[in-house]
Design a protein around this nucleic acid. Structure first.
Length: 265
DNA sequence: AGTAGATCCTGGCGGC
DNA sequence: TGCCGCCAGGATCTAC
C-alpha cells in the first residue's frame, strides 16, 4: 500500500513514538526482511542508540540515530510501521521489533516482504542506498518537474511512477493525479505542453497534500481512487465508463472521456 | 531509451 | 472443500 503519503505517516509515527528514545532491544522475528545486514549485526549496531529526527525521501523512511547508524525502511506493497507497547502480543507479520525506553515499541509489519530494511553506517551509505532516487515528489519545484518530464519519451504514467525520475508516487497516486489533471496516461511525457506540465505539477501538489493529511491516498467517492475497485467503474466527474488498462505493468484506471490526449501537444 | 516479462513474497477472491 | 489462476498502492533484472 505505501506511497509517499503513507510513508510520511510512518515518519510521524516514528517521530512521535521513537524520537529521543533509546533502543533497548532489537528482535528480528523474520530475517527475510533484512537486506544486506544480518540480524545479529542489526542488533549490535542499534542497541543502545538514541533515535534522532526521522526523514523521508520518496517511499524511503530514514530512521537516524544520534551519532550512530541509520535504519532505512522501505514498505513495499504491504508494509507498515506501528507504535505499541513492547509487551503487546506479536502479530504474525511483525518482522522486526524495536523495544524503546519509556515503555514504547516500534514494529515493522509486512505481509509480503517485497522490500525491507537496510542499515547505513555512514552518510555515504545512505547516499548509495538512495542513489537511484529522483527528487522527492513533494519537494520538487515546477521547473525541475517540467524538465524531468520533458526529458522522457515514455508514457506519462510510467514516468510519474519511475522512482529514479520522481520519488514517491505509486500506482494509485499516478492515476489520481492524471485523472484530476485531465491527462491521458498514455501520452508521451515529452510531448505535453507547458500548461500541461504546470497543471500536472499543481495537481500533484494538491493530491499529495490532502493525502499526506490523511496519511494515505483517500478513497473518498469524489476521488478516482474510490472507484477503481468497483465492478463497473464510472468516472466521478463525467459519469462515463472508466477504462482499465495495463500500463508500465500496472493496472491503470482512467477516463478516456475526461482525460484527453490521443494526440500529443 | 523504453517496454514487456519474470521474479521476489503472501494471501484473498472467483471459478470450476 | 479443494485446487487453480489471477490479482494486489513495489522494485529490479533480463531480454528485445
Amino acid at each position: 500500500m505505501p506511497e509517499l503519503p503513507d510513508v510520511e505517516g510512518f515518519r510521524r509515527v516514528l517521530a512521535s513514538c521513537g524520537q529521543g528514545r533509546r533502543i533497548e532491544r532489537v528482535d528480528v522475528s523474520d530475517p527475510g526482511v533484512l537486506r544486506g545486514v544480518s540480524g545479529r549485526r542489526l542488533r549490535e549496531e542499534l542497541r543502545g542508540r538514541t533515535l534522532a529526527e526521522p526523514e523521508r525521501h520518496g517511499k524511503w523512511l530514514i530512521a537516524r540515530t544520534e551519532g550512530g547508524p541509520a535504519l532505512l525502511l522501505h514498505f513495499g506493497m504491504t508494509g507498515e510501521l506501528l507504535c505499541c507497547p513492547p509487551d503487546d502480543p506479536p502479530h504474525p507479520y511483525d518482522r522486526v521489533l524495536l523495544a524503546l525506553s519509556g515503555g514504547r515499541g516500534l514494529r515493522y509489519r509486512d505481509l509480503r516482504k517485497l522490500q525491507g530494511l537496510r542499515l547505513a553506517t555512514t552518510e555515504a551509505d545512505i547516499d548509495r542506498i538512495l542513489d537511484r532516487q529522483g527528487p522527492d515528489a513533494l519537494a520538487v519545484d515546477r521547473d525541475t518537474f517540467t524538465e524531468l518530464l520533458a526529458g522522457r519519451r515514455g508514457r506519462i504514467k510510467a514516468v510519474l511512477m519511475d522512482q529514479s525520475v520522481l520519488a514517491g508516487l505509486g500506482n494509485l497516486l499516478a492515476d489520481e493525479i492524471l485523472w484530476r489533471a485531465r491527462t491521458a496516461p498514455t501520452r508521451p511525457a515529452n510531448r505535453l505542453g507547458e500548461d500541461d506540465y504546470r497543471r500536472l505539477h499543481a495537481t500533484m501538489r494538491r493530491v499529495l497534500r490532502s493525502s499526506v493529511r490523511d496519511g494515505r491516498v483517500p478513497d473518498r467517492p469524489s476521488w478516482l481512487t474510490g472507484h477503481r475497485d468497483d465492478p463497473d467503474p464510472v468516472c466521478p466527474r463525467c459519469g462515463g465508463r472508466l477504462r482499465r488498462d495495463r500500463i508500465a505493468g500496472r493496472t491503470t484506471v482512467w477516463c478516456p472521456h475526461c482525460q484527453d490526449g490521443a494526440e500529443a501537444g
